[in-house]
């Protein structure tokens, strides 16, 4: 239904990404505004995700919108409840934007087809999570000053970690070099390696995670290695400590190197790393607020120029 929904940003042009980054930067300078006064943002979490929901609701609230919505932990694919279409149709009568998270793949795209109200995909199944990707891009851009020609090291669970898959695809146009550091059982899936080959993206695969192997990284993107992902628990026991980042591994790394992590962490980054100037994961989470403010405004048709000349800023 030809609206401004954001289902995936994997195919966004450089110009579009830059626009969103610029908007996020404006919101970082002045996050409190009334630019969305009179608007209603619905957050429909068919699958619970407290962090993502809080971040979106804060983004909407800080721009003066009102928020309605639900988190329904009982909704399952097999429950005989209302169809997704009917729920979306109903909420479309009330809201100007629908932020939704769903456990089924393709749910956000389908929702965007049954309504004229713009949909923001806050994650559907293992499929897509554009707001996480946008905050990752913003974090990289902010810390490196560019998205071009960076060495991005992805560590841990590269098989199931959807954030690394989304990030990989959205970096396509910026000539990155990826290093995939993972245990054999959680290595980057073949389809994403094919994607790299097709798009002429350089990548290196390795299983060693040491001070030396990460020395050339600009971005070290850490993920959780979860026990339940392993079919072979012997293998888990063998590798579980091999992908933990420790402060003493940072001795040889580049000055500009930043450590990202989608959070929550379990034990994959030791607490002594938090003190390091390279640790960036908490700021990264805060960037999520600005990135989501940018996404909400974008689907409502608000331009970067309008945000730059916005007179509704609330001074602290």
């Amino acid at each position: 239904m030809g609206n401004r929904s954001i289902v995936s940003i994997a195919d966004y042009s450089r110009e579009k990404i830059q626009q969103l980054l610029d908007m996020a930067a404006e919101f970082e300078k002045a996050p409190n505004r009334r630019i969305l006064q009179g608007k209603v943002v619905a957050t429909l979490f068919f699958e619970p995700s407290t962090r993502t929901r809080l971040s979106f609701e804060t983004a909407a609230n800080r721009l003066g919108a009102r928020v309605i919505g639900f988190t329904d932990p009982k909704v399952t694919s097999s429950s005989k409840g209302e169809t997704l279409k009917d729920t979306i149709k109903m909420v479309s009568n009330y809201a100007d934007v629908i932020v939704m998270r769903h456990k089924l793949e393709g749910a956000a795209l389908y929702a965007s087809e049954v309504t004229n109200v713009p949909i923001i995909n806050a994650g559907d199944g293992s499929n897509l999570h554009p707001s996480q990707t946008m905050l990752d891009l913003y974090s990289i851009y902010k810390t490196q000053g560019t998205l071009e020609n960076l060495n991005i090291y992805m560590v841990g669970d590269l098989k199931y970690g959807r954030t690394v898959h989304s990030l990989l695809m959205s970096m396509r146009k910026y000539n990155p070099t990826f290093h995939f550091i993972a245990p054999k059982e959680l290595e980057m899936p073949e389809e994403y390696k094919m994607y790299c080959k097709l798009n002429k993206i350089n990548y290196v695969e390795q299983t060693d995670f040491t001070e030396d192997t990460i020395a050339d990284a600009d971005i070290l993107y850490m993920t959780r290695v979860q026990r339940e992902r392993f079919t072979d628990l012997m293998e888990y026991e063998r590798v579980k400590d091999a992908y933990i980042l420790k402060a003493d591994m940072l001795g040889k790394c580049r000055k500009n190197m930043k450590i990202l992590h989608p959070l929550p962490r379990v034990n994959e980054i030791e607490y002594d790393v938090d003190e390091s100037e390279h640790a960036y994961y908490f700021e990264q989470a805060r960037n999520g607020l600005y990135a989501r403010q940018a996404l909400i405004c974008d689907v409502l048709g608000i331009t970067p120029e309008q945000i730059k000349t916005d007179l509704t800023i609330i001074e602290a």
Binding site: L84, L104, A107, Y110
Partner: peptide
């Protein structure tokens, strides 16, 4: 063929 695809869970 994907059981967690929306098409297998909605009348669409």
């Amino acid at each position: 063929a994907n059981p967690v695809c929306i098409t297998n869970n909605e009348p669409m």
